[in-house]
Simulated scan of single mutants.
Amino acid sequence: MNAMSRSKSDRVLDFSIYCILAIVLVVVIYPLYFVIIASISDPTYVNSGQMTLWPKGLNFNGYVRIFQDHSILTGYRNSIIYTVVGTAISLLFTLPAAYALSRKDLDGKNIIMYLVTFTMFFSGGLVPTFLLIKQLGMYNTIWSLVLPGAVGPYNLIIARSFFQNTIPDELREAAEIDGCSNLTFFVRMVVPLSAAIISIMVLFYGVGYWNAFFNALIYIKDKDMYPLQLVLRNILIVNQVSMDMMGDVDQAAKQQEIAGLIRYGVIIIAALPLLVLYPFLQRYFVKGVMIGAVKG
């Protein structure tokens, strides 16, 4: 009787958990789904709340307006370059630094970690940083976008915790006995065993570089070097300004509807690469974060 009772209670618990997860899934997925169908629906149905689950009155004018601007392709190209180069540089600096700080035989590592943590809460400010970037000759270059944030303190702490809990000291000692140097050990042993945290760093840094627009707004003056996010921002501003300058009420209302479609389309265009990339890294995401954040 007790076994049957426990079995029934387990089924009830499982059902409750699945219901809660289903609700959470709907809450998370529906806004994105709504943006997708709203970007291809008639703005009249969207604004009046008549569209809920399926697109109504297919309308691709928003995407047509967006891709009529040739700067979109240039922005895509620039963002891909900035993301790939920036992520590679960030990995090049973050992983060796995190491994070195995870070593017990590194003198002064606690002081270094204190300084790293300090930068999470305090910075030099926008004006001093701008002056520094300009004096270093990085203004209006790709380096002004990828070098200042090459090492993220939070990512460094996660990677350090991962190495502390994943790479045993016995493995390093065995490698030293065989005459393996620290650099060789890191390249041939540590890196192949760190696929999870490398994937996490690629995801974190990649998302950061892809979504970044403020640094480009401050440090880039050449429009041909604008990243995608800044290009899309300018498209939204131009459409909003042109709508505000119209005197005809009917024409302004029509332009407002187009501007709404453009806003939805811009969200999809900007998020699409990340939505495509994330499923391939998702299985590493949970593992790397749990090892790096919980056990550390």
Rank of each mutant, 00 (worst) to 15 (best):
A212K: 07
S39H: 02
R11K: 13
F204M: 14
F122S: 03
L183Y: 10
K221N: 14
M138Y: 14
V127K: 00
A3R: 14
T129C: 00
P96E: 01
I268F: 07
V190S: 05
L274V: 10
G260L: 10
Y114W: 12
T52G: 06
Y82R: 10
F185S: 02
M189P: 03
M245R: 13
L261T: 07
S242F: 07
L193S: 15
Y226L: 00
S71A: 12
V146C: 07
V241S: 10
N110S: 09
V151D: 02
V202G: 08
L25H: 02
Y45V: 06
S71K: 12
W210E: 09
Y205F: 11
S102P: 09
L217N: 13
G86H: 01
I133F: 08
I167A: 09
V85I: 15
F121H: 04
Y154I: 15
S144Q: 04
A212E: 15
M138V: 09
K8R: 13
I157K: 10
D107E: 10
A22C: 12
L58K: 03
F118N: 01
N239M: 09
S123R: 06
D178P: 05
I167E: 08
I198M: 05
V190N: 06
I40Q: 05
L145M: 08
F93S: 04
G108I: 01
K295N: 05
A270K: 08
S41A: 05
I66A: 00
K56C: 00
E176M: 13
Q255P: 02
M4C: 03
L73S: 12
L277C: 08
A259I: 04
L115E: 02
T74N: 13
C19G: 15
Y99C: 02
V202L: 15
Y18H: 12
V231R: 03
A97S: 15
L32V: 14
V276F: 12
Q135M: 14
P128R: 06
F285K: 06
I258P: 03
L274M: 15
F185R: 03
L147Y: 11
L21C: 11
R263Q: 13
L228R: 07
I142H: 01
L193Y: 06
D224R: 13
L145N: 02
I269K: 02
D105I: 04
P148S: 08
I269S: 00
L126M: 11
N61Q: 14
T119D: 04
P168N: 12
V187G: 04
P273K: 01
K254N: 14
T166K: 09
V12K: 13
Y76C: 07
L236K: 00
R77S: 14
F280R: 04
L101G: 08
G75E: 05
M225V: 08
A98N: 04
G296N: 04
M138N: 07
Y284I: 01
A259Y: 06
Q256A: 15
G86L: 03
I23A: 14
S242N: 14
M201I: 14
I197P: 02
V146T: 15
P148I: 09
I262K: 00
G149E: 00
P96C: 02
L228D: 06
A38I: 04
I112A: 15
Y114G: 10
G292M: 11
V276M: 06
K134W: 09
M290N: 12
C19D: 03
